[in-house]
Amino acid sequence: MDAEAEYNNRARVPESAALIAGWARDAAAFRAGWPHAGYGLPYGPGERERLDLFRPGPGEAWPLALFLHGGYWQALDRSFFSHVARGLLAEGVAVAIPSYDLCPAVPLARIVDQARAAAMMLHRRSGRRLFAAGHSAGGQLAAMLMATDWRTLDPALPAGLVPAGLPISGVFELAPLLGTTIAAALRLTPEAARALSPRFLPSPGGALHVVVGGGESAEYLRQSRDFAAAWGGGFEALPGRDHFTVLDPLAALGGALARRAAAMALAVA
């Protein structure tokens, strides 16, 4: 297997830079036009430990989704993804989108801890359990939230704080990245790669639906299919979607993926 070719999504999709620039424009336009939001809410002391919270309307009494962005744990931030909330908001679900620190400035395990901190802050603010979605690296983070034993972090937390997840084009086995240019900033040992691979963690139960683009690499398709099978979740390959356009249906008003995500969020509210 040529792991570099299988996992280097920006190289696989020549228009990836234009698509990411389009995300930034769409996200900025969405923020400018959405009145029910809180920006830069802190979930930790760090500069990037902030999240934006979009609500369907006034008040706080909404089911709550946490969306974790991608970028191979070493690029982008929440400002590229505000528009992804659109589809869920239309279905009556609030959406929190955090930034987090990036590799190599911090280790990947620290990013997992930050995702957990964002989830705990949202629960303490709302009293609600959370539905987690994530794209690419965010798919791994969403799965790690599902797998977390929350009572070991705070006995006051519900055991099933994040009982449902929708990882989109995630990486659930990190070892295949170790021989690629992608891994240079991650600085993972084989042992750390396995410990941070949801595929090899015990299934926490709950509701899981794994989505991948039908036009993605054979390895992305395999990882998503194998992870869904390992945790007893659903699997869906979206026809014609690549690693970047696979996110579009979540943002679409009335889209099937947005409706599925909203149903999962409503079920845990």
Results as ranks from 00 to 15, higher is better:
E219Q: 13
G179S: 06
L208R: 08
W231A: 07
L141T: 00
A229E: 13
L196K: 10
L201D: 07
D154R: 12
G165K: 04
T189Y: 13
A229G: 01
P190F: 04
D154T: 12
S224V: 09
L157T: 05
A228W: 03
A218D: 01
E173R: 09
P176T: 06
A228L: 11
T148M: 04
G160Q: 09
L186T: 04
V210W: 03
T189S: 15
G206I: 04
S169T: 12
L188M: 03
G213P: 11
L186D: 00
A159D: 07
A195L: 11
L141D: 04
P198D: 15
A164Y: 01
H209T: 05
A156S: 14
E173T: 08
S224T: 05
T148R: 06
R194A: 07
T189W: 11
A218Q: 01
E173G: 04
L208V: 09
R225C: 01
P204M: 14
S203F: 14
A195Y: 06
A143N: 06
G138M: 07
L196I: 06
P155G: 15
S169N: 06
A207G: 07
F172G: 02
G206C: 03
A164V: 01
P198H: 14
S224L: 04
A192K: 05
L145N: 02
A159C: 05
M146Y: 06
P167V: 13
L157R: 05
R187S: 14
P163N: 04
A192H: 07
G205R: 15
F227V: 04
P176W: 07
A184C: 13
G170D: 03
M146T: 12
A193G: 04
V212R: 13
P204G: 14
W150R: 01
R222P: 04
A193M: 00
A164L: 02
G232N: 15
L177D: 00
A156K: 13
E219Y: 08
F200W: 15
Q140Y: 00
L178H: 01
L177W: 06
A195W: 12
